[in-house]
Amino acid sequence: MKKLGLIDKIIFIFNSLLGTALLLSYLLAFIPPKSFPLLSVLSLGVPVLILVNLGFMVYWIIRLKRQFLLSFIVLLIGYNYVSSLYQFSSNTQTSEKEISIMSYNVRMFNTYDWTDEENIPERITDFIKEKDPDILLTQEHTVDETNLKEIYPFHFVHRKGRNSEFGSAIFSKFPIVEQYSVDFPHNGNNNAIYTDIVVKTDTLRIYNVHFQSLNVKPEIDNLRKEDSKKLLGRIGQGFGMQQEQAEMMMKKVRESSRKTIIAGDFNNTAFSYIYEFINDERFKDAFLESGEGFGQTFKLNYFPLRIDFMLFDAGIQINSFERFKNEYSDHYPVMTRFKI
């Protein structure tokens, strides 16, 4: 510090504060949101803290200052978090008899005209036909908006109650022998459904999950207008509800020894308690196995946010992972090819 100029000293003070903040944020994934709702909100800032500390590290390296070690050590300690944010190269392979599965939050097929684009249901259907996944999971699915049932001979479309505006659906080219819905007790349309799908001699259990929304609008102008205390309180409350929902679903998951895939809209990041709770030693994240780049799945104008996940039982071979950047919803669809 003695050899630093005044400006560099100020920069290093901020570097120290933000490095400490990142170090402490690593612990948030292990703290239940219901215990400290407002504290859990900080997990949303982990990606920003990672990028800021990377910026500090590069700055000090260019300046040939040993102060780069601060951010370097903090980032090294959280290597798994850094790798969750960005994948430098995809690890893809192909194999015979591989199966493809797609997850897509279709935003009610534009029922409320969130976009001026026309024929959204038809465009989504044409996109799905083009990519031709063997298994398709949709969230915010409104009934009878497409002819997907004509494409897939087996399907389970479920809304939580008569008054639900939308629900979740699983479409399959393979026979469905069992179906079930974990209806969360909270008001709203969120739930987790699963189907047992027979693929030749194997039976896969496929979960399609849609956790509680945090109701954060992607436009930055809307965030500026909103009262910060109310916003933080709502997000903290949402995290607490997500914890209850994840616990309900995982209780059901652990009752079965079938090879299992959990996919859908988590409405949370890979740095959260929810993700850590679900993605235990039994599962592996398809993006981390075969993805590339930031893997952004939600249209946030100012940050590449990944909140849609595909988690596979360790006994399943992941061949490839793709994210498709189309404009038909506020989410981007993701697809994984795998082999049992």
Score class of each variant (00 low, 15 high):
residue 200 K to V: 00
residue 161 G to D: 15
residue 227 D to M: 01
residue 161 G to Q: 14
residue 219 E to H: 13
residue 170 I to C: 06
residue 143 V to Q: 11
residue 162 R to Q: 11
residue 191 N to D: 13
residue 171 F to N: 05
residue 173 K to M: 08
residue 225 K to W: 02
residue 175 P to H: 03
residue 160 K to M: 01
residue 185 P to A: 13
residue 200 K to D: 12
residue 169 A to H: 08
residue 153 P to N: 01
residue 214 L to P: 03
residue 209 V to C: 05
residue 215 N to Q: 10
residue 227 D to Y: 06
residue 143 V to I: 15
residue 146 T to H: 03
residue 203 T to D: 06
residue 199 V to W: 03
residue 195 T to C: 15
residue 176 I to V: 13
residue 145 E to N: 10
residue 223 L to G: 04
residue 164 S to D: 13
residue 200 K to M: 02
residue 159 R to P: 00
residue 179 Q to N: 15
residue 150 E to F: 00
residue 143 V to H: 10
residue 175 P to E: 09
residue 168 S to E: 12
residue 212 Q to L: 00
residue 157 V to R: 03
residue 196 D to T: 07
residue 168 S to Y: 01
residue 159 R to G: 05
residue 156 F to Q: 07
residue 186 H to Q: 13
residue 211 F to Q: 04
residue 201 T to S: 14
residue 140 E to S: 12
residue 221 D to M: 02
residue 226 E to N: 01
residue 155 H to T: 07
residue 163 N to W: 10
residue 229 K to P: 00
residue 172 S to G: 12
residue 176 I to F: 06
residue 207 Y to D: 02
residue 188 G to N: 10
residue 170 I to K: 08
residue 190 N to Y: 06
residue 191 N to Q: 15
residue 170 I to T: 11
residue 210 H to N: 10
residue 160 K to R: 12
residue 217 K to T: 01
residue 176 I to T: 07
residue 206 I to V: 10
residue 149 K to S: 05
residue 188 G to L: 10
residue 177 V to T: 15
residue 181 S to G: 14
residue 139 Q to W: 06
residue 218 P to D: 07
residue 140 E to N: 12
residue 141 H to F: 11
residue 198 V to F: 01
residue 141 H to N: 13
residue 188 G to E: 10
residue 205 R to N: 08
residue 179 Q to R: 15
residue 208 N to D: 11
residue 153 P to E: 00
residue 227 D to L: 03
residue 156 F to A: 05
residue 212 Q to R: 10
residue 204 L to Q: 08
residue 222 N to G: 11
residue 228 S to K: 11
residue 213 S to D: 06
residue 203 T to S: 11
residue 139 Q to E: 11
residue 186 H to S: 08
residue 222 N to S: 12
residue 155 H to D: 09
residue 152 Y to W: 10
residue 193 I to Y: 03
residue 161 G to W: 12
residue 185 P to Y: 13
residue 145 E to H: 12
residue 229 K to C: 00
residue 208 N to S: 08
residue 192 A to Q: 06
residue 218 P to H: 11
residue 176 I to K: 02
residue 149 K to T: 09
residue 141 H to P: 04
residue 165 E to L: 09
residue 147 N to H: 05
residue 215 N to L: 11
residue 149 K to A: 01
residue 219 E to Y: 12
residue 182 V to L: 13
residue 212 Q to D: 02
residue 183 D to N: 15
residue 209 V to H: 01
residue 218 P to G: 09
residue 222 N to T: 07
residue 156 F to Y: 15
residue 205 R to Y: 07
residue 220 I to C: 00
residue 143 V to R: 13
residue 211 F to G: 04
residue 142 T to S: 13
residue 191 N to E: 14
residue 179 Q to P: 07
residue 148 L to N: 03
residue 185 P to I: 12
residue 166 F to K: 05
residue 161 G to C: 12
residue 226 E to D: 00
residue 161 G to P: 03
residue 142 T to L: 11
residue 198 V to R: 13
residue 205 R to M: 07
residue 211 F to E: 02
